[in-house]
Design a protein around this nucleic acid. Structure first.
Ligand code: ZN
Ligand code: ZN
Ligand code: ZN
Ligand code: ZN
Lengths: 157, 157
DNA sequence: TGCCTCAATGTTACATTATAACATCAAAAG
DNA sequence: CTTTTGATGTTATAATGTAACATTGAGGCA
């Protein structure tokens, strides 16, 4: 490994600050609860369900957020491109490009079906073009080009 | 349009017969209920939920299949590569390659998020190779290469 | 034929994921 | 301060999916 921190090298404070600025510049607010949900996702290497997040927020912040609110918060964070919904897993993961703002790029997600570990990887333009062409040939319009790949991580394989 | 039948050109009897032979050759059985569920999916241009299928089977075959059984039947049909589960939509679609047995190929599914119309398109080998490479670089193993694309069909766009 | 066995299906109960509808609270603006 | 609007709470319920155990039914064999 290159350093002694591994993935936890990422400075959460920095990411949150960027997320706050991002929201501010868009006229929205990263409230305390939204920040907690986002932080929980950033700190997790694994995708979490809405109900997982309820547990994490209770355990880590002593904060009881009802399911309905968690879903609304996730919807907000997704609309701000800070979080991605992984439909194949019914779980949520923080965007890995909050700093750098590549969030609008087309990503593929490698999701371990055993432990939910997730990795977000940008799609190459050539791939995007090919996917777009396929969709067009079939008379469909691509709405959300997010790809989710059903995988096993090396720990689980 | 090339002919007056459109997609309904596909001869369902032929497909079912191939599916039966396929099962027989694998030592499994395409029972009456399994056949009904499979037929319902083949006849539908749209992906259907398990509960949709309960309704279709009741309406078309006067047959009341409990939810648990429908899920088991879908699991069986998927294990035989006759049906695909579209996880992003929580719906199911018949394989479009039952005749020809390309079922083991890697497919991408274009799914209309408005009406659930679905099209199965084979992935080009170059695409598969690229996806595989990405997965490998990230230390994941690809389990199921199925791609699901969130689209709008031309009718709904 | 009658029994045996195992696959298929039924039944009941429940878990998980998600949304609708309406009430309340709180921050920013005037 | 009040108004306004966005954010959150509350309650109920819908939609999707699974666990556990019971029953049925189709083939194989005495
Ligand atoms: Zn992202
Ligand atoms: Zn794993
Ligand atoms: Zn197929
Ligand atoms: Zn459509």
């Amino acid at each position: 490994m290159d350093n002694c921190f591994g993935d936890s090298m990422k400075n959460i404070g920095d990411i949150i600050r960027v997320a706050e600025q991002h929201c501010e510049s868009r006229g929205t607010r990263l409230t305390k609860k939204r920040k907690h949900v986002l932080t929980a996702l950033i700190e997790s290497a694994k995708a979490l369900s809405a109900y997982d997040l309820i547990d994490v927020c209770r355990e880590k912040y002593g904060e009881d957020i009802p399911a309905m609110s968690v879903y609304r918060i996730l919807e907000f964070l997704e609309s701000e491109n800070l979080v991605h919904k992984l439909s194949t897993a019914s779980k949520y993961a923080s965007c890995e490009n909050i700093i750098g703002d590549k969030a609008r790029c087309y990503s593929q997600f490698l999701i371990c079906k055993s432990c939910s570990k997730v990795k977000e990887v940008g799609l190459k333009p050539t791939m995007i073009a090919e996917l777009q062409a396929t969709v067009k040939d079939a008379s469909f319009k691509l709405v959300n080009p997010q790809l989710e790949m059903n995988c096993l991580c090396d720990d689980c394989a």
